[in-house]
Design a protein around this nucleic acid. Structure first.
Ligand SMILES: [Zn+2]
Length: 462
DNA sequence: TATGCCGGGTC
DNA sequence: GACCCGGCATA
């Protein structure tokens, strides 16, 4: 049992598992405004000090440089501005023509932001860009941006562009590395990454979404988010966070978190049947930047899935370079943890459904841990050529964790070195309790499909 | 002996 | 492909 436990733990990982808040609930990433508030040094803002001064002289020459309406905003004028992905109303504090920037006091947010004049329009007008809030001030200048502007563009772009390029590179890197990444609902891209081995056993009961068909879920959140996640690659510290609703306690050790979950949430009475090791389901690994407490990458692998805890086989073709691990949970994300995603129902019954669906060739094995958090898992049958002997079913998670020697590998080694040599293709029986044992023969209808068919259990993986 | 599941069969 | 089951290996 302990070994099973360790296997489970060994499988837990965040890498590649991206946890996203829904678009609506995403913490608004408004670098500009935040920076402005926090007075963090930034090129853009550094130059702002002077740029946002009143420069009445400019009033005469600025208008007309582009085909767009250049409105002179008067201090105190009520305007609308895109902020946080929505249209906000505010009052003009300053309008700098030199920089073409307007300092606006947002009424709703009660904060001051400095943004480009294009992004501001009089409150009585329609939004100039109704459906496209100015994204991060990056590579894409809004179409309406005056192109002949020669005052500020280069200055504050250089860094931003550099950043964007870095971000793009990182995103691409992570995409190319990660078999499956996450995406906000609605954005899915197919890609074919890792393939089932040519010799892969294509039995229906093993039929897990071949990565080729797994909808690639790409995070198209803000580059900032991606970037921050990517940065979390470096010097991250692994912590364990309690997923119990409204808890979110973070501990440094697995033991600690398990004890916490067990003691506080499960009440030590978990020892029977499927609820054994239930505490495993209620914590997740989070990675925290060593230096920064508030790392932003949303992430979590909250998946209370046995798959998570099942060992990644080392025989996967090119070991999928881990997708960028997501950073620690976004501070704000904690509050997104739904109350009840996990708690109410026993994990078993919860992903019971998921697993069965996966078994029945659901293309994507996603474990909705919450309406906002998904963990994607891709499966692949290990090519029988890869494992020297047996066509061991292998499961590749789109993420992995501090690579411990995959337990399955261990068992595999044991098998191969065993005197008996296990020459047959039969794999050693797992030690985990399977549906049959868990539910009993009388509840056969609760078994996973595989068990019902007398195939390798898909729900309780070894 | 109970369990897990491979291999093969039927529909 | 879904489903069933004989029979073997293993705990
Ligand atoms: Zn099962």
């Amino acid at each position: 049992m302990a070994s099973v436990l360790s296997r489970r733990l060994g499988k837990r990982s965040l890498l590649g598992a991206r946890v996203l808040g829904p678009p609506g609930a995403a913490p608004p990433l408004e670098p500009q405004a935040e920076l402005l508030e926090g007075a963090a040094p930034q090129p853009f803002l550094a130059s702002k000090d002077t740029s946002c001064q009143e420069q009445p002289k400019e009033l005469l020459k600025a208008p007309g440089t582009s085909g767009l309406q250049q409105v002179a905003f008067q201090p105190g004028q009520k305007v609308c501005v895109w902020y946080g992905g929505q249209e906000c109303t505010g009052l003009v504090e300053r309008h700098s023509w030199a920089e073409d920037k307007v300092t606006v006091w947002l009424l709703d947010q009660k904060l001051q932001i400095c943004c480009k004049a294009e992004e501001v329009w009089p409150a009585e007008l329609q939004s100039p860009i109704p459906q496209a809030p100015p994204p991060e001030q990056g590579t894409q200048a809004p179409a309406y941006r005056p192109v002949s502007r020669n005052i500020d563009v280069p200055k504050r772009k250089s860094d931003a562009v550099e950043m964007d390029e870095m971000m793009a590179a990182m995103v691409l890197t992570s995409l190319s590395c990660s078999p499956v990444v996450q995406s906000p609902p609605g954005v899915e891209t197919n890609f074919s990454g890792e393939e089932r081995g040519p010799g892969a056993d294509a039995r229906p009961w093993d039929q897990l979404p071949s990565p080729g068909s797994v909808p690639l879920l790409v995070s198209v959140f803000g580059p900032w988010e991606t970037l921050s996640s990517a940065f979390c690659w470096n010097s991250v510290k692994v912590m364990y966070k309690c997923l119990w609703p409204n808890c979110g306690k973070v501990l440094r050790s697995i033991v600690g978190i398990k004890r916490h979950v067990k003691a506080l949430h499960l009440g030590d009475s978990v020892d029977s049947g499927q609820f054994k090791r239930e505490e495993d389901f209620y914590y997740t690994e989070v990675q925290t930047k060593e230096e920064a407490a508030a790392a932003g990458g949303p992430a979590a692998d909250p998946a209370p899935s046995p798959s998570l805890t099942s060992p990644p086989l080392a025989i996967l073709p090119p070991p999928p370079p881990k997708a960028q691990s997501s950073g620690p949970d976004h501070p704000g994300l904690e509050s997104y943890l739904p109350s009840g995603a996990l708690s109410k129902s026993a994990p078993g019954s919860f992903w019971h459904i998921q697993a069965d669906h996966a078994y029945q060739a659901l293309p994507s094995f996603q474990i909705p841990v919450s309406p906002h958090i998904y963990t994607s898992i891709s499966w692949a049958a290990a090519p029988s050529t890869a494992s020297s002997l047996s066509p061991v079913r292998s499961r590749s998670l789109s993420f992995s964790e501090p690579q411990q020697p995959p337990p399955a590998m261990k068992s595999h080694l044991i098998v191969t070195s065993s005197p008996r040599a296990q020459s047959s293709t039969r794999k050693a029986r797992g030690e985990a309790k399977k549906c049959r044992k868990v539910y009993g023969i009388e509840h056969r209808d609760q078994w996973c499909t595989a068990c019902r068919w007398k195939k390798a259990c898909q729900r309780f993986l070894d």
